[in-house]
C-alpha cells in the first residue's frame, strides 16, 4: 500500500492543466496499490488554487503558502515537498513532467535519496507494487521499471495521462509550514519570468496543433498563422525549423522538446524525423501535408495530402471556413 502525494503546478494563483495528469496518475496508482492520494499546493497566494483542488477526491489538500515562494526557484520549493512527503508518510511523490516537474522532482529525489522514474507513460500495480513504463531512446523502446527505495519519485508524461475530471466532494484543506530552503539557495536569485505573449493556447494544453517544418522557410508565420487562428490552434515546429531559425525554439515538438497529444495535429511540411514523431504520435488524428510522397510522416498520419503546402494551406483555410460556415 502506498499513499501518493501529487505536487500541483500553479501559475498566477491558478491550477495549471498539467496538474490534472498527475492527479489522473495518482487515482490509478492509489487504486492499484490500495492507498489514497493527497495534493500539495505550494507557492505564494495559492488559497484559490487550493480550493479548486478540493474537488478531485484527494484525502486532503496540503497548502504551503508563503510570500518567499513568489517566483519559482527549485531550491526554495524542494525542501517543502520533501517535508510534506515525510510528514504524511507518502510512498510516492508525483508531478507532471513539465519544465516545472522535471526541474523540481529530480532534486526532491536527490534529497530523499529516492529512485526517480522520469516522464512515465503508464503505471500498473503488481501485487501491491507499482511498475512504471517509460518511453526511452527517442520513443523507440519502452522500459518497465520499478523502484525499491522507501519513497518513490515519479513524473508523468502529460500526453499519456488523460486529465482527471473533478469527481465532486470536498477534500479537507491542511495548512503546512514552508521548510527552510536548500543549502546554497542564498546563492540563487530569481531575476525575472519573461512570458511569451500569445493569444494562442500553450502547446501542452491545445486541442488542435498546427506544426510546421523547414519547408516553410521564412514564410513560417505567414502560412501557418491564418490556419492556426481559424482553428484556435497552438503553433508548433519541427526541430529542423527551429534550428534553421524559422520558428522560435520554444515551439519545438519532439522527444527532447514538447511532447503533445492533441485531438488534431496538422503536420505541414514536416518530413517526420524519429525524434519528432516521438513528440506527437500520441495525437488522436494526424494530418500531414508534404510534397514528398515518401516522407516518414505518412507512416503515422491518418490523412495524408501530397501537395505543395504553399498552395494547399491557403486552400485549406478557405475550405475550413466554408465548412464551418455551413
Amino acid at each position: 500500500m502506498a499513499d501518493i502525494l501529487v505536487v500541483a503546478e500553479l501559475a498566477e494563483g491558478k491550477v495549471k492543466k498539467t496538474t490534472h495528469s498527475a492527479i489522473a496518475f495518482a487515482r490509478d496508482a492509489a487504486q492499484g496499490s490500495g492507498g489514497t492520494f493527497s495534493i500539495l499546493a505550494l507557492g505564494a497566494g495559492v488559497a484559490a488554487a487550493a480550493a479548486q483542488l478540493t474537488g478531485f477526491g484527494a484525502a486532503k489538500v496540503i497548502v504551503a503558502d508563503d510570500a518567499g515562494l513568489a517566483g519559482y526557484v527549485c531550491e526554495r520549493y524542494a525542501p517543502t515537498v520533501v517535508a510534506a512527503a515525510k510528514a504524511g508518510g507518502f510512498g510516492v511523490v508525483v508531478a507532471t513532467a513539465s519544465a516545472f516537474g522535471k526541474d523540481l522532482l529530480a532534486r526532491v529525489a536527490g534529497q530523499l535519496d529516492a529512485g526517480y522514474a522520469a516522464d512515465i507513460s503508464q503505471v500498473k500495480a503488481e501485487g501491491g507494487k507499482l511498475a512504471y513504463r517509460r518511453p526511452m531512446f527517442a520513443g523507440n523502446a519502452y522500459g518497465w521499471c520499478s523502484i525499491d527505495t522507501a519513497t518513490q519519485v515519479v513524473t508523468v508524461r502529460q500526453s499519456e495521462f488523460s486529465p482527471a475530471e473533478p469527481s465532486g466532494g470536498a477534500s479537507p484543506i491542511e495548512a503546512f509550514a514552508v521548510a527552510p530552503p536548500c543549502a546554497g539557495a542564498e546563492r540563487i536569485e530569481f531575476v525575472s519570468f519573461e512570458q511569451v505573449k500569445s493569444e494562442r493556447p500553450e502547446l501542452g494544453e491545445a486541442s488542435v496543433i498546427v506544426a510546421g517544418g523547414r519547408a516553410l522557410k521564412e514564410k513560417f508565420k505567414d502560412v501557418l498563422d491564418p490556419l492556426a487562428d481559424l482553428l484556435g490552434a497552438a503553433v508548433g515546429a519541427s526541430r529542423a525549423a527551429c534550428d534553421a531559425g524559422y520558428a522560435p525554439s520554444d515551439l519545438q515538438i519532439g522527444q527532447t522538446g514538447k511532447i503533445v497529444a492533441p485531438k488534431l495535429y496538422l503536420a505541414i511540411g514536416i518530413s517526420g524525423a524519429i525524434q519528432h514523431l516521438a513528440g506527437m504520435k500520441g495525437s488522436k488524428v494526424i494530418v500531414a501535408i508534404n510534397k514528398d510522397a515518401d516522407a516518414p510522416i505518412y507512416q503515422v498520419a491518418d490523412y495524408g495530402l501530397v501537395a505543395d503546402l504553399f498552395q494547399a494551406v491557403p486552400e485549406l483555410v478557405t475550405a475550413v471556413k466554408a465548412a464551418k460556415g455551413a
Partner: peptide
C-alpha cells in the same frame, strides 16, 4: 535506485 525488468517496442500506429 531503479531497476528495469522489461523492454518493449512502441505500439505501431497504423498508417492512414
Amino acid at each position: 535506485r531503479i531497476a528495469y525488468s522489461k523492454f518493449e517496442p512502441p505500439p505501431v500506429r497504423k498508417a492512414g
